[in-house]
Amino acid sequence: MAVTIKDVAKQANVSPATVSRVIADNPRISVKTKVKVREVMKELGYYPNFQARNLVAKNSRTLGVIMENSAALAFQNPFFPEVLRGISTRAHESQYGLYLSTGATQEEIYEEVIEMVQGRRVDGIVLLYSKIGDPVMEYLCQSGLPFAVVGRPYKNPCSVTYVDNDNINTAKETVEYLIGLGHRQIAFVGGATDFVVSLDRLEGYKQALNKHGILFDVAYTVNQEFMQGDKSEAIRRLMALELPPTAIVTHDDMVAYEVIGYLEDLKIQVPEDVSIIGFNNHMISKHLKPPLSTVDISIYDLGLHAAELVVEKITDASVPPKQVVVPSRLIERGSCRRL
């Protein structure tokens, strides 16, 4: 026979109402009582019916997590498992489950978000990207549902709560690191130009060049759109310039891996012929030959803080919008050399 809340109350010598409050982690219940009741629950093997409780309370105890594209593609990038690890940690501590988007296109993801909100499937949402003119963010602004963004919103349409790195200054400092090694011909291989993080890192690249009297030359920049189709051809043209770059800054480590592969096909060695540096500090980066210099952007902390901000807003709707900046740090390895 299934153990009931009354059985737990009787064994713990408290009322059923007190057991319910312990399950809900009500702050009015003392720590001592919570410990005693939870020990009895564990001893008796009692598991609360959260689905029933949530129906009564009109909440789901679930956070929606929206990725920038289909789950199949997203999980090929080590960024997403790591940021999800941070989100999961805070969600678990607050007794929330996760609902991941599964749409394969921007349109499918948009429809899925509408279903999440209107179907009350989630109590809040973490948006794992920030794009220019994104219909998902615009809809969330209008919906009234608590949400937070991993990334700086473009023009911040509704005083959005977000967590991000200082991508402009971080990129600027990364380029200055290469300039300090004696490099003047520095290329930038960026991401898609409708993502705010791509724009910010390109802006930091430009600021560093300007600060050190190096003219910005669009020929030294390659973005994701330019690399569509034959990506190796884009790198070949870059390295065929009259003054080819002696160093390359890439949008993230995944892009750096690709670029290094194309350079190998061209018989161009890293770092003997060209230095290269990435962003995100993926686990595999230190195991490359040579190990990849990179910027650690604290991906886990980005997810942790984003979930924390959403849960805070769910708990107290009067909390004002917040912006959290997570620090990043340059990790010097063997893929960069001094000229």
Rank of each mutant, 00 (worst) to 15 (best):
P153D: 02
L309P: 04
N280G: 03
V259D: 10
C141S: 11
I260R: 12
R120F: 12
V255N: 09
V196C: 02
S285A: 15
I331W: 09
V255S: 03
V274Y: 08
I5M: 15
Y205Q: 04
Y129A: 12
A17E: 10
D273I: 05
V22K: 04
L266S: 07
R152F: 06
Y129W: 01
L238I: 09
L241N: 06
G204Y: 00
V56W: 07
G182W: 00
D253N: 06
R28A: 14
P321R: 12
K211Y: 09
T161V: 09
G86P: 10
K42N: 13
E233W: 03
G213P: 05
L302P: 01
K34N: 13
G119F: 10
L73C: 11
N156E: 06
G103E: 00
T294W: 03
C158D: 07
T246F: 10
C336N: 04
P16C: 09
M283K: 14
R53S: 14
I179A: 07
G278I: 06
P290I: 07
Q11H: 11
K6V: 10
V326M: 05
V274L: 10
N49M: 08
I214R: 00
G204I: 05
A307T: 08
S293P: 05
R121V: 12
Q207V: 00
V249N: 02
S328D: 05
A104H: 12
I132H: 00
G97K: 11
E93Q: 15
Y177I: 11
N26V: 01
S143G: 08
K131F: 01
F75T: 10
R184L: 02
I260W: 02
A192D: 13
K289R: 14
L140Y: 04
G64M: 04
R53M: 14
E68P: 14
L243Q: 14
A247G: 03
P290R: 09
M67S: 01
S318D: 11
S293G: 08
K6L: 11
I248H: 02
D217G: 11
N280I: 06
E225W: 11
N210S: 15
L145N: 05
A71H: 10
Q106P: 09
V37L: 06
R329I: 07
N54V: 03
Q142I: 08
V150I: 15
N77C: 07
Y139V: 09
T102G: 11
L145Y: 08
T161Q: 07
I29R: 10
H287S: 14
R152L: 07
P157K: 05
G45D: 02
Q51W: 10
S328V: 02
D217A: 14
V295Y: 01
L292N: 06
M227R: 15
E82Y: 05
R85L: 13
A71P: 07
R53C: 09
R184H: 14
N77K: 03
S328H: 04
L73V: 13
I260C: 13
N59G: 11
V14I: 12
F147N: 04
G182N: 00
P321W: 11
Q118N: 15
F79G: 05
Y220E: 07
L209S: 04
E111N: 15
V122W: 01
E272V: 04
I314E: 02
K313P: 00
